[in-house]
């Protein structure tokens, strides 16, 4: 995303930001609402994470412009995510 945006492009961006903001707000309320239903742990975790991932990707895609970001940034993030998975799961699988 280069620094210079035409007038028209920014107006389009602002419209997107407003819509993303509403979506994020709604999803937040949704995830809180879901927590009041006493689902089993597995379901609760799955739903909560699904909503969180959705909100996260909205922020990343639109606010952080990842949607239009170049390959090199995606490459670094993909590699980081691969090692992130190992880091996240290995200690808990210690006794397997």
């Amino acid at each position: 995303m280069s620094g210079h945006l035409s007038e028209e492009a920014v107006k389009q961006h602002v419209r997107i930001y407003r819509r993303v903001f509403l979506a994020l707000g709604a999803l937040t309320v949704l995830t809180v609402a879901v927590s009041y239903f006493h689902f089993s742990v597995a379901v609760a975790v799955a739903v909560a994470l699904f909503i969180a991932v959705t909100k996260g990707s909205l922020v990343a895609a639109y606010f952080m412009h990842l949607k239009t970001e170049r390959k090199i940034v995606w490459g670094i993030l993909a590699m980081t995510f691969f090692f992130f998975v190992f880091l996240l799961t290995a200690p808990s699988l210690h006794h397997r």
């Binding site: 995830t31 927590s35 909560a48 909503i51 909100k55 990343a60």
Partner: peptide, 20 residues
């Protein structure tokens, strides 16, 4: 980008600590 990342971390922190 840094600020959105900090918000992103909270988006995951919030359900994990407060809702589960």
């Amino acid at each position: 980008l840094y600020w959105h990342f900090v918000d992103l971390v909270w988006i995951f922190l919030f359900p994990i600590l407060y809702l589960l």
